[in-house]
Write a protein that binds this DNA or RNA. Structure first.
Lengths: 364, 364
DNA sequence: CTGTTAGCGCGTTCAG
DNA sequence: CTGAACGCGCTAACAG
């Protein structure tokens, strides 16, 4: 392993005076010509092909030639041109990731998990956000097609992107929810179970008026949580009352008003908020109104966030293995990139109920 | 609403047969040939050059030809090959961003700000994290050189990456702190002022034993905050006592122990925690010890975070215009990419003290 | 083991 | 206004 080949690039750097006189300022028109394979071949007195073989260790090269080539490459600060390589191989080393909301910790952690395993496999990751807009999602897909990404991992908001990608031979892994009309790998949480456990926990504390606050999407994640809520109620012998179910569009400007209305009109003694953002908004409404948890109303969230453990009382939550979700998605993708055709795999990860102070027995 | 369409994940999966007969599976060897400029030219009965001119609107093309070409391109789902284009133009549309910690909200918002203005200018952004390791930072720089990124925005941890980039003609903007030995654009916060205001706020409340909790780095940001702390003390007529200054390395495993030691040995009545992570750790130590804010000790943080406003009491903090920091950095970069040589610009943005409940008069 | 040849897909000459 | 030719930098065949 020539692990130190690139370790001290700095030593080649010129001091200030030299820099400004020798190298033109970036983008000043006086272009700096990057060193190319041909350059180092010429310098070492070989052909470009030999240089190529030496530098990426494929094919036969004599010890002597290789050492010399590597030395020269080092000395000249050679950096292979990724575009040229991609053009030639018709496939880049960049895996695309498109998520709904770059600002949401959930997606950030997801991406972190993906990046972790991708990096080990020597792939790069490029993340794009689509603001939950199918249009932007398709634009992202197009970007990755243009870059000749071998695969894309996404939290889908529409099926168009996946289909486009697949039609161009790009491997796709859907994560967190499934939406594609075409078969592809996926990794999701057992949302049904999460919703059920949350609901049964509340029912077990004696709550009978348990509201569900959900996101109004066609996502499987929401459908699953709602499903779990219903199952939970049934198992607890409680009736399902659709007036206790409020589903709010992602970007609704009147979210807090709707929550307030739920509180006023339905007087739930407990609320299951099926996303981290909704949980936060419920929490804010309660605080503003001076309602205390769990005395006035119990709260269960879905998807743990740092603040949930820091506030007083802490928020009871269905925790997801977010990092692992990302890791698994990446592993699925890598398998698909390496192996030949497998039948599409769907992995289901288990959530876990974390009980904190925001839930308690119903008060008479 | 077809909410149940996917509720039982497995049921939607197509049997293998369909998959393999209809669409070739990605990476199955049965390659899907992406449509190329030549393809659409042939289809439209023109040459590739004409197609190129028509599709990106440069050079003369007859109305008729252009319309036809565009129609064909649309119909065939043409996506230009970014690698080929980059290879030809010797410059890609991807701007690199490298930050210290992808998981930290501060850097996430920074990136969001950058992305915002880059996108308007029709550039893509690729973010890399370097875990505050100079080695990884240089690796990131190398990645962007390989991709022929026209520019890179970074929160530097060492000077090597910037110098490498600059030596290859890549424009660099340093953001949040300055480190390069070579001249380059930069945009930073007025950390000195932030530190000063935090300290004077505390002093104004009657505190005399004000501790500074800082990050042990060579970053200008930390130096500035420390500087501001000293100035603040001086202006308040308080002596500087170095024993009240604790500087903790970024990844120190014993951070909390050090904080505890500070509390035990120096009994400060107020602490200025000069980063969002340090503020969180101080907060945790206080909570674990049952100390109350601001009665037992007052706290001021640096860099606002959502939890700081949610906990009780809220944390007084020096807030930074993080999004704007990113936006400005991107604007600086764009200017550099477009314009010819300017002298390097350094923009300084102002922080703002947000007073909440964690600071109060010193208790006798 | 090595060099020569060819071509990935595109944009940019330069003749027509 | 259009097409033919060329080359960006790299790697895969194929001779030698």
């Amino acid at each position: 392993m020539n692990r130190c080949r690139w370790c001290i690039p700095t030593e080649a750097i010129q001091p200030d005076a030299l820099v400004t006189t020798q190298t033109p300022h970036p983008n000043s028109g006086g272009e700096v010509q990057p060193v190319t394979l041909a350059d180092i071949a010429r310098e070492a007195g070989t052909s470009a092909s030999t240089a190529s073989r030496a530098l990426n260790g494929r094919g036969y090269v004599s010890e002597a030639a290789r050492d010399r080539l590597i030395a020269v490459a080092n000395r000249m600060g050679y950096v292979p041109n990724a575009s040229a390589r991609t053009l030639k191989q018709r496939r880049s080393r960049v895996v695309g990731v498109v998520v709904s909301d770059l600002g949401n910790q959930f997606y950030a952690r997801l991406a972190a998990g993906i990046e972790q395993v991708l990096r080990e496999a020597n792939y790069q990751m490029m993340v794009l956000g689509d603001n939950s807009e199918p249009t932007e999602e398709v634009a992202g897909a197009r970007t990755f097609i243009a870059m000749r990404a071998p695969g894309v991992i996404m939290t889908p908001v529409g099926s168009g992107a996946t289909e486009l990608l697949r039609s161009q031979g790009v491997a796709v892994v859907e994560v967190d929810r499934r939406l594609a009309g075409v078969p592809c790998d996926a990794v999701v949480i057992d949302n049904e179970r999460g919703g059920r456990e949350a609901t049964m926990h509340l029912a077990g504390l004696g709550h009978e008026r348990i509201a569900l606050l959900g996101v109004a999407t066609n996502w499987t994640s929401d459908a699953g949580r709602l499903q779990g809520y219903r199952t939970g109620l049934r198992k607890a012998g409680l009736p399902f009352d659709k007036r206790l179910v409020v589903r709010i569009p992602l970007d609704a400007p009147d979210t807090e008003a709707r929550i307030a209305a739920l509180l006023d009109e339905r007087a739930p003694t407990a609320i299951f908020a099926a996303s981290n953002t909704l949980a936060e908004q419920v929490w804010r409404v309660l605080r503003r109104r001076g309602l205390v948890m769990p005395g006035d109303v119990s709260i269960v969230g879905f998807d743990d966030s740092p603040w949930m453990e820091m506030v007083e009382p802490g928020i009871t939550v269905v925790e997801q293995p977010t990092l692992e979700l990302g890791r698994t998605a990446a592993r699925l993708l890598l398998r698909r990139l390496r192996g030949p055709t497998h039948v599409p795999a769907v992995e289901i990860l288990q959530p876990r109920l974390v009980v904190r102070g925001s839930t308690g027995p119903v008060e008479p």
